[in-house]
Write a protein that binds this DNA or RNA. Structure first.
Lengths: 350, 350
DNA sequence: GTTTAGCACTCATACCTCTCGAGTGCTAAA
DNA sequence: TTTAGCACTCGAGAGGTATGAGTGCTAAAC
């Protein structure tokens, strides 16, 4: 007994129907949707086969059928129609992207927010991989005799700055000198190396200057740590509550609080395919075993990658979500590919 | 018929009981908790009075009593025992505060997060009022011939910076000159004034330089706008789902999505009391009519105020929440009062 | 006048049974 | 291989009943 075309067609109708209504789909309903006249009895035979093959499941004897994870998988891989975005959908996405993404730094978090809005499911976002971030350039700017601004540029072209205050006033030459010192000895190295070199300087540099250096180095280390420990942003988790599969408050709570408190464990794409779909039990994490995740990645300037994912019930509208998400990711890549002209390659510091 | 001491005592027992169990409290249960032996029949007479006075309600004839908003109000104002924090609670709060609040900028959002964790209810946070933010100091730092870093210090002592790129290379003198120009003409003014002055310069300044100025001014305006439009951070909204009053998914969804999508409408303190409690219908916003809010504010450096609020069912554990929240806010004020030495007063720029 | 015991009454909840109908599986005929 | 027919299954909902917590009221006791 094999998967004939008709079986596939029936499977597709079941998945489509279940996605739309969240109710088991019966043989009669299928018969009506099948092209050519076929009786419900025939459909029943086919359905029995599909259950035996593992593509469908039966909640109980006298109910219609619902897709199994295997069924969804086949649907996603072969059966589902490419959802072509309507003009309105494209307009909505473009609209949501215009002018919103000025700060490179905020791109990632905003992407998650926008996706959640655009696809109508909860979403999450994070910045993906690449080599470790390091300081690339320092600048110290005097404000008054008791405070100065530390500016640190990182290897991924982000610039961070903070006001710092001093116990003891320093004279005018100090800041430029220390800037130079930092730029010569404290760039292109990691956090441990920074502490190390700072220690070595402790007896070569006069006390109040050393304190100042210490402050800046601390700040830098903090930035590096922040950059290394991937931060994940989740958005719209409350939308889960609108799906009937999460009417059970406990289930909903499990998933919502997983998305909020345990973001770090949300799935990241395995290979380097631009889009990936994880269906129910295909998810490693228990909390997601009854949900599906669609992940897409996009390029941000400076060979970084961003990642946006969408979470929903296994009964997710894969076709639409996939289409919107991939258009969204492509748009982002495009926006950051050409028009942004950031200094394109590493340039040794100072 | 007036509020005798015994009636108050009974009211207190009802509120305490209802807070603890979320179930109507019956006369027998009350009788057991009353000091001195009083029969349940007597209690029933008193309860009937309390209902008539509007302090209690009866879900239906044969159920126990639950507090009305008026009842909670009396409880909060007079009856509730000051919850004195245990050593563990204090330790937990202190612990959560240590070393977490380095960046003035992140204080507000982190405060919300910490409060939510510390008090065990959903929380929100925002930075409060004070005069409009303005640019106070600029600095332009060359990176290479095609890019530079713009550093803008705002009147509230926050420092922001971003990498910017240029179409045309500029020579070495340009950046310092333009920095000076910005510092002389573009500080201590609002966004509209910035655009205005920029326009006036359009024919006095050579093209590529003007473009550069334009970039910086745009960035500044963006910062100002960002600062003016109060941002509200919410945390732990999912914790609502653990309360029986939000077992009804629709109710839960209403409130959760209100907290997430409509944060701006969350209540802000009316007077300048350090702590405020809004009970059920006392809230202006419909979505909060069946919930209570506890708000506290604290001082951040530079005469700014931060605000943290806690949201929960009317049956909230006011005593504990209030105690923890106020300790938390006091700690924050203390941390930012003395030990932080930011430049203490406005100092006219350059 | 206040308190108490006693008792009939109320109502939400849980549980049972029954009915209804959608949907099935199987069989036998086309 | 397909179809009609039919008995069967099972969930959902309606209706009915028992249970028990809790009440209000009355009349007696303090």
């Amino acid at each position: 007994m094999s998967l004939t075309d008709r079986k596939k067609q029936i499977l597709k109708i079941v998945v489509d129907g279940y996605i739309a209504t969240a109710e088991p789909v019966g043989s009669k309903a299928i018969a009506e949707k099948m092209p050519g006249k076929i009786s419900s009895a025939t459909i029943r035979n086919e359905l029995a086969d599909l259950v035996e093959l593992g593509y469908l499941e039966q909640p109980h004897t006298s109910a219609g059928r619902i897709p199994s994870a295997k069924g969804y998988r086949l649907y996603v891989n072969e059966l589902m129609e490419q959802h072509t975005l309507t003009a309105e959908e494209i307009a909505a996405i473009n609209q949501s992207l215009t002018g919103k993404l000025a700060q490179v730094d905020q791109v990632v978090s905003q992407a998650g927010q926008l996706v959640s809005r655009v696809v109508g499911y909860p979403a999450y976002a994070m910045a993906g991989g690449k080599s470790a971030v390091m300081p690339r350039r320092y600048e110290l700017i005097g404000v008054d005799e008791r405070s100065f601004i530390a500016v640190v540029m990182l290897s991924d072209s982000r610039v961070k700055s903070q006001l710092m205050s001093l116990q003891l006033a320093v004279d005018a030459d100090t800041l430029p000198e220390l800037s130079h010192l930092l730029n010569t000895h404290f760039t292109a190295i990691g956090a441990e190396e920074i502490s190390l070199r700072l220690m070595n300087l402790s007896d070569q540099v006069e006390g109040s200057r050393f304190l100042l250096l210490h402050q800046v180095c601390d700040y830098t280390c903090e930035l590096l740590q922040q950059a290394s420990h991937q931060s994940v942003y989740t958005n719209g988790a409350s939308q889960l509550l609108t799906f009937p599969e999460y009417r059970d408050v406990d289930k909903a709570h499990d998933l919502v609080s997983f998305m909020v408190d345990n973001k770090e464990s949300l799935p990241i794409p395995a290979g380097d395919s631009p889009m990936q779909i994880l269906i129910g039990p295909e998810n490693v994490n228990d909390a997601l075993k009854e949900s599906s995740v669609v992940i897409a990645s996009y390029d941000i300037g400076d060979n970084m990658r961003g990642l946006v994912g969408v979470v929903g019930p296994t009964r997710m509208d894969y076709a639409t979500v996939a289409a919107r998400l991939s258009y969204f990711a492509e748009s982002l890549s495009r926006m950051f590919g050409a028009p942004r002209q950031l200094p394109n390659k590493e340039e040794t510091n100072q």
